[in-house]
Design a protein around this nucleic acid. Structure first.
Lengths: 351, 351
DNA sequence: ATGAAAGCGCTAACAG
DNA sequence: CTGTTAGCGCTTTCAT
């Protein structure tokens, strides 16, 4: 199937190749290749100009796929985001990671391929049905068993993998984990509210299991233990993480007469829902009820009083993952298989 | 360079190929290929089992790159997001589009490649340095001249292109534009505040030029014209779109003694910044000052009173773009080159 | 039902 | 400086 003359059909089949350029410039394909790749030492000035002219006239763009096959490198990193909802980029924590990763990779000539997928469908993702990446980043969620299974699967790909916020113990030299210090974040935030007199804490967690959430909760427990006071903690699961659902779950809990003087949101969205719920019922924040969030990116500013929260280094985490992956591609191994990035406590008026 | 024995080096070089599987199963590569692609009619049952065993044992995964080259199709759509800031996925409008697109493409066996890039660097994006996509989606911004140049460039790629929210007139059968009805959205929101008595409107626009913002502004002007009243509109540019910067720009404007009774945010973030500014200075919202946003996804719920805003169909726009692109890949042309998706006015308490 | 050959577009290695 | 050869991993076509 040859090109159909000069009608610019918009299809791969009709895109010019090195050979077309070579014929047009009356040189060999190799010379064109040399020009395209700026190996100027190997090409005479006049020849180069002729070739460049042909390239322009034919509107030649090299085929990434051929280069990849020939070079046995894909110059692509794949990102899989496990999520139950189709809006897999809703969480700013995730978008910051992806943006950081993407920027880092672009700067090094790599592409980013991205896919959102249900936690139980990871191994069936289009991204893995055939492999066109040099390395993988994954943000997993779901039960330990599900995550374990997905990690095992990723290992079969024979590519370096960076996981975010994963707490499973993994014993492979080709899997690294990048996390923020959620434990310390939880500890700091609990210490803060306890220091301000709170005694009955309520932790709001999304129904979907994210390992990071459990870490935050463990941090809170650690702070309670350290305080040696009679502080109590209850966990409340908020189905679907939606605004209205969160508020009605909270409403049911409070209506049952349970004493609560601090609500610790597993993330900012949960915290804001709770705060608005209180304010709508004239429960003074922070007077009667302290409210804290987690992973403040922008939304902590949206409320009045501003949200006391933990600022996440998500963008840096993405960049870091990119650097680690590319380094593994060169070195064949990860220098560090576990990296913990510090978080920052940020006081607002809500607690 | 052969594989290095049985040590599982984690590199492309050592990944098993069809040939390895074929040797192990004592069949030809073609037979393995047939098994992998489930062309069961061409393979005997016993042979198939032997091959599957070899595949499992060697941990074979087909090479996407080879398939792409051989099939002259990349099964990949590229998304370029022009943005001045590195956090190119910060805007939920964009993430919803990307998620919608990604979901649609995955469902059809396509991958999504994504890159954020400065508006004046689009043509230098890694994504285009060599072409490994079948089609392109672009969210452009910047001046008309810049966008025009970028569109021209995209045309040289000889691929179908879907642009979001683009207002330039483009005359190519291979470029389609998907937009939400920003004009109507602006009109509705202005009509609303005017109906409630506002006479001096202030439109907050981000300093980066987005065509959609201009559309919203035009819609506002249209509503003012229709109202046949002495309503006045001023535009205020908010540098960097940041919270503090927006507030100080607004502060400077109001301090100059200009009369304003309604602030129309070009997007929700700007609106929320303005609303918080007013509330901190005891300017009653909506009593003394009406405030409206645009593109409410979640954050409209974060404020008290809740934000009156326009709900964007961004996810659907992404899905739609995906369908259009894949259809072009089959049909060689776009059925419609301009699609306008309706928006929905959503009343809150802020206006 | 199975296999051999050819070639997708590109580049490393070498020959002139 | 320029050209020829071979081959990356896969699938289409044709032969057995």
């Amino acid at each position: 199937m040859r090109a159909k003359g000069n009608v610019a059909r918009q299809s791969k089949a009709s895109r010019p190749t090195l050979r077309h350029v070579a014929e047009r410039a009356h040189v060999s394909v190799m010379t064109v290749s040399n020009v395209v790749n700026e190996r100027n030492q190997f090409v005479g000035v006049k020849t180069r100009e002729r070739v460049q002219k042909a390239i322009r006239e034919l509107n030649y763009h090299p085929s990434a796929t051929s280069r990849k096959l020939r070079g046995m490198q894909d110059f692509t990193i794949g990102v899989v985001i496990a999520d139950d909802e189709p809006a897999f980029l809703k969480d700013p924590f995730i978008t910051e990671i992806v943006a950081g990763l993407g920027n880092q990779l672009s700067a090094q000539g790599y592409s980013l391929s991205i896919q959102g997928v249900r936690p139980d469908q990871v191994s069936k993702a289009v991204m893995f049905s055939s492999v066109g990446t040099d390395g993988i980043c994954a943000i997993l969620c779901g039960s330990e068993a599900t995550r374990r299974r997905n990690v095992e699967f990723l290992l079969t790909l024979r590519q370096p993998v960076v996981l975010f916020q994963e707490t499973l113990e993994i014993d492979s030299p080709h899997i690294a984990v990048v996390s923020q210090d959620d434990h310390e974040g939880g500890r700091e935030i609990a210490r803060h509210v306890i220091g301000r007199g709170a005694r009955n804490l309520l932790f709001l967690r999304p129904s979907m299991e994210w390992p990071a959430i459990s870490e935050r909760c463990r941090g809170i427990r650690a702070a309670i233990k350290e305080s040696r006071s009679g502080v109590r903690l209850t966990e409340l699961e908020c189905p679907h993480e939606g605004f209205a659902e969160t508020q009605s779950a909270l409403g049911r809990y409070l209506a049952a007469g349970k004493a609560v003087d601090a609500i610790l949101g597993g993330n900012d969205r949960l915290a804001i829902a709770a705060m608005r719920y209180c304010q709508d019922r004239d429960i003074d924040v922070p007077g009667k009820m302290k409210v804290t969030g987690f992973n403040g990116f922008d939304s902590w500013r949206y409320t009045k009083p501003e949200l006391t929260t933990i600022v996440s280094p998500a963008h840096e985490m993405g960049q870091l993952a990119g650097r680690m992956l590319l380094k593994h591609l060169r070195a064949g191994t990860f220098a560090r298989r576990k990296v913990l990035v510090p978080v920052r406590f940020q006081a607002g008026g809500s607690a």
